[in-house]
Amino acid sequence: MSSSLSQRLYKRIERFIVPVLLLAGWETFSRSGILPPALLPAPSQVMLAWADWIFSTDGNTQSYSGRWLSDIAASSGRVFAGFLIATVLGVGIGMAIGWSRQVEALIEPTLQTLRPIPPVSWIPLAIIWFGIADKPAIFLVFMGSFFPVLLSTIHGVKTCDRNLLRAGAMTGGTPSKLLRHIVFPAALPSIFSGLRIAIGSAWMLTVTAEMVAVKSGVGYVLWDSYYFLRYDIVIASMVSIGLLGFLSDYVIKYIAGRVLRWQRGSTLQAKEG
């Protein structure tokens, strides 16, 4: 009984073991004096700065004090806007390319030429086209998120079971009905995989854009605090970005789990068989 209880307890805490050990080692190293505390702030110092950034506890972060929610909202809005545009266009164009060889021949060479271009290389043009505001950040998020969604959608459509398509066609299914009722559901697992990759790219590109082309958001705070040698705020910004990316990925996983319940059921049936 005690062994079973200890196993359940271990399963509850196992995901926290490595982070706790890393924090303890980091705290010990920072306080050892090997590096100046200003260059590598201890986790406790970072937490104090982060708390003031969020709650305006003691004003130690000065102009950033109490601004965390507004900075998070600004960055999240840019991520959501660019990611949404990339999702709509990526899924739509990906479905067309995967379904029609004619569309594939017309569009894919151009897209494959654009795909290797790093999204950050678009920054100068984005600033010229859209100025210093939200639009260049949204554009960069779109450029970074579009291709993962596009390629995963094409893959999902092209790997759809041809027997299902034949069966649907034999029962009188039109191309539009086959796309809507067979191909799109079959491609959803691949699409959700692409969305998870895309949301990570979206956060990276938002932070990059905020360092250069925007005057608000978590990325701007990270870069601005670097100039003032506030490395505790720099690290707090990095941790904030990591947590936001984790939560965004969790939301997509949750939605995928709800939408793809049929896949989980079929997998269980296959295992039982």
Rank of each mutant, 00 (worst) to 15 (best):
W68Q: 06
W68R: 01
S70I: 11
S70Q: 12
D71I: 06
A73T: 12
A74M: 11
S75K: 07
F80P: 05
A81V: 14
G82M: 01
G82H: 01
L84S: 15
I85W: 10
A86M: 07
T87A: 13
V88E: 12
G92N: 14
G92M: 13
G92Q: 09
I93V: 15
G94W: 03
M95R: 00
A96W: 11
A96L: 15
I97E: 09
G98E: 05
W99F: 14
Q102L: 14
Q102G: 11
Q102W: 14
V103K: 06
E104R: 13
I107M: 04
I107R: 02
I107F: 09
E108L: 15
E108I: 00
P109R: 02
P109Q: 09
P109T: 05
P109F: 04
T110Y: 13
T110S: 14
L111Q: 09
L111R: 05
Q112C: 07
Q112P: 00
T113V: 15
P118S: 01
P119N: 03
V120H: 01
S121W: 00
I123N: 04
I123D: 01
I123T: 15
P124C: 02
L125S: 02
I127D: 00
I128Q: 10
I128K: 11
I128E: 03
I128G: 01
I128S: 13
W129N: 06
P136E: 08
P136A: 10
A137I: 11
I138Y: 02
F139K: 00
L140I: 11
V141F: 09
F142N: 05
M143G: 09
G144C: 05
G144I: 09
F147Q: 07
P148Q: 08
V149R: 08
V149T: 14
L150G: 06
S152N: 15
T153C: 08
I154S: 06
G156T: 10
V157T: 10
V157C: 07
K158P: 05
K158F: 02
K158E: 14
T159V: 13
T159R: 12
D161Y: 04
D161G: 04
R162E: 11
N163V: 10
L164K: 09
L165K: 00
